[in-house]
Write a protein that binds this DNA or RNA. Structure first.
Lengths: 162, 162
DNA sequence: GGCAGGTTACTCGGATAGCGATTGTCCGAGTTGATCTGG
DNA sequence: CCAGATCAACTCGGACAATCGCTATCCGAGTAACCTGCC
């Protein structure tokens, strides 16, 4: 039960891309530099975000990644599922139908009650993540960011985009 | 984001142990036979349940495992955490404090807002699991179990415990 | 017949290999912007 | 000076290794029941 490490990188990256001026894109390499992450590996996760339709790419010089839609319309759940997959974390293997005391398979109509409880909890988790939009993350993030970092980031971004 | 497979086995095993007559214990090997599982590996998980204080053991002949407390006082969360660990599935590595634009570490007072959102969702998940007691699982399980399996299980249990 | 001691067989517990998924990396295909040349 | 074609550099995308945790297994330590012999 460990979430892919790339999820954290992806969320931070999306929040950062959302702060970019419109019609500007940022290469994966620059993002990796900003967060001090291994560039090729971050690129792999950005690809997943691209496949999921959360970010869009632009090749060639002055190219890179940028958000594909408004931060208001991007939820944390979307990003998490883009990186970590959509398969449920609890997979019922129907062991109640195994062993010497099992009945015929057709006798089991409803899903296993244990699986139902686990899936229900997972639904609550997903529901919480769906409530949080990227816009909220950005807003809170900027509000709580130290003044020093705000200035440095603005300066850094200016250099890169020039 | 995949839950340890042993979690399913552990929950089924606990539910089954709860159906045992009081003061009777069941060896790991018999449990594995009943569910058609690899015995040594199931035993490993039962050990974890024992360490967590959910089941208790009795060595020697007529020994085995049995519940350490009433099914009413055992929650799904306890079992899940006993097998899968209590560490949060989202680990914030504070990448906001990395890179060329980071401020001094002391400037970051509150936890990262992304981590707060992820932890909040995880809290909801754990809360849902805490609501479900083993007693409820047993009750639902028995109610929905095919008649054929009920009879076979009763007969099988009689043979084993004699 | 009852009891004590020894034996035996059965149980759990921790230490030990194998495998798959995640982590980490690389190079090639494609595209865009800039440059150079000719009109 | 302008337009078009060429060129070159920069970008993403998918294919390729290494490491860590989960899966699976085994044997040794400990214990309780049982059996036997004695009182």
């Amino acid at each position: 039960m460990k979430l892919n490490e790339g999820v954290e990188w992806a969320i931070h990256s999306c929040a950062f891309l959302g702060a970019l001026p419109p019609d500007k894109a940022l290469p994966a390499f620059q993002l990796a530099t900003y967060f001090d992450l291994p560039a090729p590996y971050l690129a792999k996760h950005l690809q997943q975000l691209s496949t999921a339709g959360i970010v869009e790419t632009r090749k060639g010089p002055k190219g890179g990644y940028r958000l594909a839609k408004s931060p208001d319309n991007i939820t944390l759940l979307e990003i998490v599922e883009a990186i970590d997959g959509r398969s449920p974390c609890f997979q019922c293997t129907e062991i109640r139908q195994k062993g010497p005391s099992a009945a015929k398979s057709s006798e089991y109509t409803r899903p296993c009650s244990i699986a139902r409880a686990m899936l229900s909890a997972e639904k609550a988790w997903r529901s919480e993540l769906r409530k949080v939009s990227l816009a909220e993350i950005q807003c809170t993030g900027v509000t709580e960011m130290p003044q020093e970092q705000l200035e440095k980031t603005a300066s850094w971004m200016k250099d890169i985009l020039s």
